[in-house]
């Protein structure tokens, strides 16, 4: 229904179609674009950046979060630094990225990693610190090795927080990757949007914006699904599985 309203507004030039083209025109244009290799390449480039950003952030944030969360001393020692660095907008680092990296994958991945690490780190350490003391006492009374405690008690118990952290980090990673593509000119959907704008191809630009939105929706859905499966034992999910 909303789409119909927009279509009408654009067709009647109520809103100049230079600004807001009719949805049907956008659809036609993007379907034509999909026949070309560069369309798919842009999506792959963006997804690769997103995955690398999220993956590297996870490799940094999860182990660090476990370490920080399981020692009061390390927690206190790192807290002021994390609390200060976390709200620093990662886009502030764009000029530095200009200098240090070529306009390629590395620059945008760097931005994504910097931005995605913090929410994941904070959620992980929060989850680890919130493990029920009795669950740890139980493990300790049975002389469970440290390694098994981490993988079978600490991590599963912190999983709800980890899932939240990963979902936020995924969104953030996508945002920063596309930022990198627009601002740094790294290949991907963001660059395609910018080029379409420079070429005054308004329909195509909207088409790519739509694709970016669809990627966002899709990744959200994937994470929600994975979360439901991984946390089926958790109280928040039980109603839906049993």
């Amino acid at each position: 229904m909303v789409l119909a309203v927009i279509e009408l507004a654009a067709r009647t030039e109520l809103i100049p179609s230079r600004f807001l083209p009719p949805p049907t025109a956008v659809a036609v244009r993007i379907v034509a674009e999909a026949a070309q290799g560069r369309f798919w390449l842009a999506i792959v480039d963006t997804l690769a950046g997103w995955a690398l950003g999220l993956g590297i952030a996870a490799l940094i944030a999860i182990p660090a979060g476990i370490l920080i969360g399981s020692s009061e001393f390390v927690y206190r020692a790192t807290r002021p630094i994390i609390e200060f660095l976390r709200p620093v907008p990662s886009v502030a680092l764009i000029p530095l990225v200009f200098l240090l990296f070529s306009p390629s994958l590395e620059g945008k991945v760097f931005l994504a990693v910097f931005a995605a690490t913090w929410p994941l780190l904070v959620q992980t350490q929060y989850g680890i610190r919130n493990v029920l003391p009795l669950q740890l006492d139980t493990a300790r009374s049975f002389q469970i090795s440290r390694h098994r405690v981490i993988f079978r008690v600490l991590l599963p118990s912190a999983l709800p927080y980890l899932a939240t952290g990963l979902r936020i980090a995924s969104t953030v990673s996508l945002i920063l990757v596309i930022t990198g593509e627009i601002v740094l000119g790294a290949p991907g959907i963001g660059k395609a949007i910018n080029e379409a704008r420079e070429g005054a191809a308004v329909e195509l630009m909207y088409g790519y914006v739509l694709i970016a939105g669809m990627l966002g929706v899709m990744l959200n859905a994937v994470f929600a699904g994975v979360e439901r499966r991984a946390l089926h034992w958790h109280a928040s999910q039980r109603g839906t599985t049993t």
Binding site: V2, R18, F19, L20, L174, I175, I178, T179, I182, V183, I189, G190, I193, N194, A196, R197, V202, M205, Y206, Y208, V209, A212, G213, L215, G216, V217, N220
Partner: peptide, 20 residues
């Protein structure tokens, strides 16, 4: 519609505002 608009990575809208 809202869920979709929220999922659009915000910087993707930057070129659009420059045009409009």
């Amino acid at each position: 519609v809202i869920e979709f608009l929220r999922a659009v990575p915000p910087p993707a809208l930057l070129p659009f505002t420059i045009i409009a």
